[in-house]
Every structure is written in C-alpha cells, then in structure tokens.
Write a protein that binds this DNA or RNA. Structure first.
Lengths: 337, 337
DNA sequence: CTGAAAGCGCTTACAG
DNA sequence: CTGAAAGCGCTTACAG
C-alpha cells in the first residue's frame, strides 16, 4: 500500500505553492503556465483530491453525498426507488449511501446517525413508523431531510407518497363495475402507513358505492406469502365466500395467487393486487394490478432534495404520485360464472 | 440551520481539554469524574463526532465505508447482492455506498473514483468488462478491491462468482435426461463474462454428451425480453424447431415465456431458464430454472472484503458459488407429446 | 495574479 | 493520568 500523493507533493513537484495547486484543482484559471505545470505534476503523480479533507475546510461543508434509508434494498420496490434517487444524484456528481432498516426504528436511527456522522448533504428516509423525534436534531444540525413512501410522525418535511388510498379505491370501483359487492381485503401490518392508507381507500370506496362494509372480509396483519395463502384458503372455504379478492401488497398477492390456483379457483374468483409483479401478464388469467411507480417516486424525491439543497425555501411540500390500474384478466372476472 | 456542536464546545462546557473529550469519545476510561462531566456535556449539547474529521487525522485512515458498483441496483439480482454486502458491513459498523454502471465502463470508472475520493475502505465491483487497468492505481493508493459476479480483466484480486458454466451444464444434462437433443440456447451480450461462461457451459455439456453442436440453435446478443420473444418465435417457426429452450438470463426467460404462450407451445416445448423468477412456480407449467444465490454472493464477497481489511494477506482467492436446478414442470416436458 | 498563514474538527505524539 | 501543541489534507481570507 503506497501513500496516496497529496497536494503538497503536487506543489513540490510543480514548484508552486499549495494555494496555487488548490486553485488549479478547483478550476480557477490563474496563470496558464503555472496551471500547466500543476496539471503535469498531477498527471505524473496520479494525484486525486481527498474529498473528505476538502469538505472539512470548505465554507459550505458540502460532501456531495446523500443517504437513503429504506425498509429493504433487496425489495424490488425500494431498489427501484434507490435507482431513481441515484440517477438524479448522479447528474449532480453526488454519490448515494443506501441502507435497510427492515422496518426496525432502531436500525433506522443507527443508519441515519451513521450517515449524518459522515456529513451527508441530504437524507431520504422511508420512515419505519417509530418515534422519529430524534430526526429533529439531525435537521437542526443541517441535514436536509425528506420522507418517501410514508410521511413522518412528528416531523413535517418534504414528502413523496404513492396514491395508496386512491389506487385501492380505483381497484374497488373496477371490481364493482364488474358486478362484485363481496370484495375481500387482505392487508399488511397496520403499523405501516401505506397499509393503513390502502385500508382507508377500501373503506371509502365501498362507502362511496353505498356498499356496507362486511368486517369479516377484511383480513389485516398479513405480512408474507404463506400467511396470505392461508387467509385466502380460509376465506374461500366459507359458506359465503367473497367473489373478489383485493390483495394490498406484493407478497400477499403472490400468496393469494398460489392459494387460488391450488384450489382451482383462479378462473372463478376475481383478483386485483396492489403493486405490479414480473410475469403477472404471463399467468392465465393475467393478474390485474394497481401498479406503483417506484422509480418515479425516487426521481421526485431526488428533485425535491436537490431543490432544497439549492436553498429553495418555503413550507414543506407533499407530492402524491399516481398509481395505474392494469387490467389483465383476473380483475375482470364476474361474480358467478 | 444551527452550527453542529464540536469537541471544542464540549470541552468548554465540561471544563476539560480537547484531548480529554477525544479520549472519552473514543472509549478510553481515564478519570471517572472527568468522563462523567464530558458525557454530560455531550448529552446537553447533543454532540456527535464528525467521522470525516476523525478519519482525516486517524493513523489507519479508515472511513468505515465501502462502495459497491453493480450494473443496476434496480435489478433484483444486484439488489440482493447489495443487501448481502450491506448485512455484512453492518455487523462492523460500516456503511455502504451503492452505484449503477449500466454496463458502461466510463460510468464504472466515475463511480469508483468518486468512492475512492471519499476514501472508502473497500470497493466491491461488478466489472463492466472494459479496460480495468485504471483500478491498479486505486489499489496502489490503498483501496481494497474485490470483484463479484465477474472477474477483472487485467487485475487479479479476490473474486466471487456464480457457477455459470456448471449451472447451464446441469440444465443441459437435465434436458437430455428427459430425451432432448435439439436444445436451443439464447444468450445475452457476449461481451459480458457471465454470458460467455453460460455459453461455454452449454457447449461443454453437449460435448460431454456426444451431441454435436448445431450452431443454428445458438442465438446470442439477445439483451431484452422483446428480442428474446422474437428469437423464440423465429426458432419455433423453423421446419426443424428445437424441442427444448435454454434461456441464459432473466429477461430472455421472460421473453421466451411470452412467445411460447402466444403460440400455445408452452406445453409442447421444454424450457429451462437461468436465474429464478417470482411467480415462476405459479405458471402452468411451472418454469424450471437454474437459480443463482445473489445474497450469498454478497455475503461471501463481504466476508472476503473484511478479512482483507483485517489485513489477511496471501494470494487472491476465487470463490465459486453453486447454482441450484429447480424442476417445476417446463423442464420436464419430453421431446414429443 | 501568487504565496504564507490560519483553520476546518478531529487524533496523536509529547511533556508534565 | 491530563493538557498544550502539532498535524491529517485540504480551503480560504489576507498580504504582497
């Protein structure tokens, strides 16, 4: 391991002062002959500036890095979101830290504090829903905070959300238009904001259609595919089964697909899932879904972030990204056939 | 934006020297009464150490951060790999930068140089296959380099790979065991190492089975689903179509699935895909795949990385992570039925 | 315009 | 053990 050359080395080789090297490195023209000598020394030594030292002394203290805390970077939804943020950051020469909280408030806090200790310029957080008052201190210390996918609890900052309630409501009305009134709702953990929003969309859409809510058709706290499959089988074994299924999350949708197929019910029960799935269009019937747009969420939150970093002032903004119903067959099955 | 409190502020409030604060922050015991005074001042001010400054002066110059350059963080394979690295890094209090090269050597280089300029301790790279001699300088400067998913071109460092050739060979033998001799191979861009390896596995497996290679059944440079669907339709429209399809990548598999279904051939032509897919088991027939283990790749590369950072010496190591054939129906269809 | 000096927020010899 | 001083690799007033 060789010692990395420093500005001092460059200055010595070029026969100029440290200040002159710094100015050349920072693009300040100065005397052309000196600039050229410095550039030559830089090339010879293979010098590259230490951004951490540069950042330490610089007046604006900007590190050209941002941190993103999501529930799980391996989840395709959050991976697409990360990519959206990264693409926007790249256009500004900003690099992206990524971390997974696994919905654990303690891990969220560790990640956030790790990022701020490394002096990120901005921090994009998918809040896990715990006490987020600790973020106040990060904010006061200068970190530009944004929430994405879910709003904060105590903190009110720029936030980008999917239209969860609206997307589910569209799905309910779509099923109703195909003749359904007994629509079961399978939802995730209610401590997650998006789960609560989707349930709200379900209730409000039914109310708007003057359909009384049958609470026995609402099954919550379903957090994985296996649980979803069990719940689906249970619902379909009833003497008065639902004629349609609304699955409010990816893994739930997958579980329901398996359960319906194993009971040969996939041509007899309507099904709409929230979140799109690879191969959903290759199944028979294709799975009708309400698709979110995670990379758009990422881009939007990135745009807001860099606007703030460019010192846009004003009250916190909230952006709702629309969802899209994609009919593929399963959502267009009628109540009896 | 309030100025972040510094060690100097803590020292002033606690009535001790800067050195004492530094020692307390770094866990050096010292006089208990002083340590307590310092801790109180830290709590009152909400002081948190600036890691970038700490790193600058520290003897080992370690930043507790690593950088990961993959082709695309939004690709589920690379997202799982990222998660594997992150999980291992977290156990050491190390944070992870992530970046997407989109297979572009220039973007790869920009990302790498951005990470090293921020003095990451380690750098995990999925090399895009261009000239990687620039990495030599990064390595000499002290960055611990590792390759994952693909080996480097000029540089020989610790590398973690999937058993691409072996996985494809297993698939060929599996199809052969079910009676196939005319097995078409659809491969991705041959400038990508994994694509070449998979083709090699195909050729070697056929040779091992004493089946002459029919070059007209090999279709390469297929880079997306649409192209794969077209190639599939073209192959199946021949007077002597293949009886089995081997699709060497995720998007190719998806394209082939669509093409076979649109021609009602999915129950008549055998099909094995490389890389697992969500819902592959919900299709009829289920799609037989050779599954990679990306999170295991991530963990393995993380393990190697931290061993090196703990100053393990010795020659570069190469780890091959096995793949798994998962029979689900499509790969068990016979040549004529 | 350039260069010498101070300083960013820390850690680390060194003296007491 | 503690504290004063030097220094990590830079940037930034400031003097010439």
């Amino acid at each position: 391991m060789v010692r990395q050359p420093t500005m001092k080395d460059v200055a010595a080789l070029a026969g100029v002062s440290l200040s002159t090297v710094s100015r050349v490195v920072n693009g300040d023209p100065g005397r052309p002959d000196l600039a050229e000598k410095v550039q030559r020394a830089i090339d010879v030594l293979g010098y590259r500036r230490d951004m951490t030292a540069s950042n330490l002394r610089r007046a604006d203290r900007t590190s050209a890095s941002v941190g993103l805390v999501v529930a799980d970077v391996a989840n395709p939804f959050f991976a697409a979101l990360l990519r959206g943020v990264e693409d926007l950051a790249r256009t500004r020469g900003v690099l992206t830290y990524a971390g997974s909280s696994d919905e654990d408030p303690d891990r969220e806090r560790e990640l956030v504090q790790g990022f701020t200790a490394r002096r990120v310029d901005g921090l994009v957080i998918v809040p896990s829903g715990g006490d987020d008052s600790y973020l106040l201190r990060e904010q006061q210390a200068g970190a530009t905070l944004l929430f994405v996918d879910r709003p904060g609890v105590t903190l009110n900052v720029d936030t980008v959300l999917s239209d969860n309630a609206g997307g589910i409501a569209t799905a309910v009305r779509h099923l109703h238009a195909h003749g359904h009134r007994r629509i079961a709702f399978l939802g995730d953990l209610q401590r997650i904001f998006t789960s609560r929003e989707r349930l709200r969309g379900y209730r409000e859409a039914l109310a708007g259609l003057d359909i009384p809510v049958d609470e026995s058709l609402i099954r919550l706290e379903v957090h994985n595919s296996q649980a979803a499959a069990e719940v689906t089988r249970e619902l379909m074994a009833r003497s008065d089964p639902p004629t349609a299924l609304l699955t409010a999350q990816n893994l739930i949708t997958i579980g329901a697909i398996h359960a319906l197929r194993s009971r040969q019910l996939h041509h007899g029960v309507a099904h709409v899932g929230f979140d799109d799935l690879v191969l959903a269009d290759a199944l028979d019937p294709g799975i009708t879904v309400v698709a979110q747009n995670p990379s758009s969420l990422g881009e939007r939150v990135g745009t807001l972030l860099f606007e703030r970093l460019d010192s846009v002032t004003g009250p916190p903004r909230r952006i709702i990204v629309p969802t899209t119903l994609i009919p593929r067959g399963s959502g267009e099955i009628g109540p009896r056939q």
